[in-house]
């Protein structure tokens, strides 16, 4: 029973970080129909930017913010230069485009920072007792902060002036343009928002694993699973699916080894594709 509760907490904590990565991914897909294969690399670059900014500022939270802004600017440039010209063409172009970007960014990081993992020091080192486990406060803070960022995004989309622009463009980009909404700029901004969310999750997650040039790969794969299971382009669905998949994995690791538990995510993906390919968490179309 103790183990079950501990795994529930673990599942939710991991689920929140995954949700932060996945909501950026699903936002970008929803509005541009671009499957962003470079998302994991933006996560990874965000973590490296966090390392650099932490060295400069000495403050983790300042570094988190600065890294998110750095990656937002970088990704806006990437979007304008490499993706904007490809939008509206066959999806294969943007798949190859983002895949290319991902290779370039990964090898840039390897060249710039080397193969040795960099350490991001966690800002809080305290623990609290959770059954037989010393549970670090930082993990709780990390989950809460992820939830807060996602909540802020949701409120912005729901109530903000530009939030309405984003939702309108997501639903019908031609009509949005005909209503005077500058669609190309909206696309760039959304890409930057999605990328900065990936960067923020990279910085938040960095202290737990160490920052390497390949750290994005695992996450983006899981984020893709979540986006499909939650329903492509559906923000609420992605968040629910993140928690769902992370809980499944956490419980599975009670029975099998944690390395094998990863399989559960992919089983969920396959079952979803077979049973309900539009996603588990989308309302049935009437």
């Amino acid at each position: 029973m103790d183990a079950f509760l501990i795994q529930t907490l673990n599942g939710i904590v991991n689920g929140m970080i995954l949700a932060l990565v996945a909501s950026g991914l699903t936002l970008i897909f929803g509005i541009m129909d671009v499957v962003n294969f470079a998302h994991g690399e933006l996560f990874m670059l965000g973590a490296y930017a966090g390392v650099v900014w932490l060295a400069i500022t000495g403050n983790f939270w300042a570094a988190l913010l600065a890294a998110a802004v750095t990656i937002a600017v970088l990704s806006a440039v990437l979007q304008v230069v490499a993706l904007r010209p490809l939008l509206g063409r066959d999806p294969l172009y943007t798949i190859l485009g983002t895949f290319g970007i991902s290779l370039v960014l990964q090898n840039y990081a390897l060249w710039q920072f080397g193969p040795v993992p960099r350490k991001l020091t966690e800002p809080l080192t305290g623990h609290f007792r959770f059954f037989y486990l010393e549970y670090p406060y930082y993990r709780i803070v990390m989950a809460l902060l992820s939830a807060a960022i996602i909540g802020a995004l949701w409120a912005f989309l729901k109530y903000g002036k530009y939030g309405i622009w984003i939702r309108a463009t997501t639903q019908d980009r031609v009509m949005a343009a005909a209503m005077g909404i500058p669609v190309p700029i909206v696309h760039t901004v959304v890409f930057a928002i999605g990328a900065s969310m990936a960067a923020a999750s990279g910085v938040l997650f960095g202290p737990l694993v160490g920052v390497t040039h390949a750290m994005g790969a695992d996450w983006v794969l899981k984020a893709f699973v979540v986006v499909v299971v939650g329903g492509m382009g559906n923000l609420a669905g992605s968040i629910l699916a993140s928690i769902f998949i992370s809980l499944l994995e956490a419980y599975a690791s009670l029975i099998v080894s944690p390395a094998q538990a990863v399989i559960v995510a992919f089983v969920a993906l396959i079952v979803t594709l077979l049973v309900r390919p539009t996603g588990l968490f989308v309302p049935t179309p009437k």
Partner: peptide
């Protein structure tokens, strides 16, 4: 198109193209 709209040409397309998931007020707010 967004600049055409801003200089004073309104467009009501054939299939109406309402933003279906936006409320009526949000549709107007665009």
């Amino acid at each position: 198109p967004y600049r055409v709209a801003r200089i004073g040409i309104g467009y009501v397309p054939e299939d109406r193209r309402i933003f279906r998931l936006l409320t009526v007020l949000e549709n107007l707010r665009t």
